[in-house]
């Protein structure tokens, strides 16, 4: 598996528009496997430095525009390396703060796309930097809660259909802002555990195919709301392992498909949440090794 991650780093021109997240996925897998030292630390830190813009935001790659998605990935990577001082943290905080809208929501960048994913990116970035109090948290919470649906889940914007990825973002957001009590955890937990299909794999919405990345979005959400035992862990574990490619060690969305770093991280992180002892413990809110968060002194709330 570790070899696979190293290989992935050599073929990536076409996906440079998300490279910063790609690096975060790869490095987090390596750290969870206790192999972080195999990656070129200095090269990566220099790359991140070069991706910080005048406005404070960080882009996916050099020559690309800054965005909250990659700002969070960059901050996560720097936390793995305990090197936040490599970038101008004050400016990152200003950038995040500047993207909050009047209704409490966050735009992904200056072009104004609104999405609860960006609400999560904003508070996760600020939580890792210890600067949560710089935004209007009450307003931000109000917006996320306005995206809650009839099934207890969340979508991208008010009125949008529930989706496991958005639910992960919103439960993570409510954890970081200390507002998990606002959830209808029993109703949401029911919807989430109904994502498990006879194959053991999880889908992201009703009537959809299973996918390894949802083993993370759904499982982490269930962990955050204290109901991870509502799915059949042994069956899910077998499904995730069936998605590992024997040749490369990486993970695909479904058994037999092409592997990539995205699914590899979420497969490995899912196995960690399921209690796999070969893998370091992963934090369900930030998808980072628990020992890294302990070093930072960040302990997001979980429901019991």
């Amino acid at each position: 598996l570790s070899k696979c991650v190293v290989t992935c780093f050599q073929e990536y021109t076409l996906s440079e528009y998300l490279r910063m997240s790609g690096i975060y996925w790869g490095l987090t897998v390596m750290d969870l496997m206790g192999q972080l030292q195999r990656m070129n630390r200095q090269e990566i830190i220099d790359f991140i430095k070069a991706c910080q813009h005048e406005c404070g935001g960080i882009s996916a790659s050099i020559g690309h525009d800054p965005h909250l998605l990659y700002t969070l990935s960059a901050v996560q990577i720097l936390c793995l390396y305990d090197s936040l001082d490599a970038i101008d943290v004050e400016k990152v905080v200003d950038y995040v703060k500047g993207l909050q809208q009047e209704d409490g929501s966050f735009a992904g960048d200056k072009w104004g796309e609104i999405d609860t994913r960006f609400s999560f990116c904003a508070v996760a970035t600020l939580a890792l930097l210890g600067k949560m109090d710089t935004i209007n948290v009450d307003k931000a919470v109000e917006f996320v809660l306005s995206c809650m649906n009839f099934d207890g889940g969340f979508g991208c914007r008010p009125g949008s259909e529930s989706h496991a990825g958005q639910i992960y973002c919103c439960t993570g957001f409510l954890s970081l802002t200390g507002q998990l009590h606002q959830l209808n955890a029993d109703l949401l937990g029911w919807w989430l555990c109904e994502r498990q299909l006879p194959s053991g794999g999880l889908n992201g919405r009703p009537e959809k195919l299973p996918d390894v990345c949802y083993s993370w979005w759904v499982l982490a959400s269930l962990k955050i709301i204290g109901r991870i035992h509502w799915i059949d862990k042994a069956k899910l574990r077998r499904f995730i392992l069936a998605c590992q490619d024997e040749e490369t060690g990486g993970f695909a969305d479904r058994p037999g498909d092409m592997v990539d770093p995205f699914h590899t991280l979420f497969g490995v992180a899912g196995l960690s949440l399921l209690g796999d002892e070969q893998i370091k413990a992963v934090n369900p809110v930030l998808c980072m090794p628990e020992d890294v968060l302990q070093r930072i002194g960040l302990q997001p709330d979980l429901l019991s």
Partner: peptide
């Protein structure tokens, strides 16, 4: 049976 723990918790409630 995959969701038996959910039903147990709901029944307990």
């Amino acid at each position: 049976s995959m969701r038996s723990a959910y039903y147990s918790d709901l029944c307990s409630k």
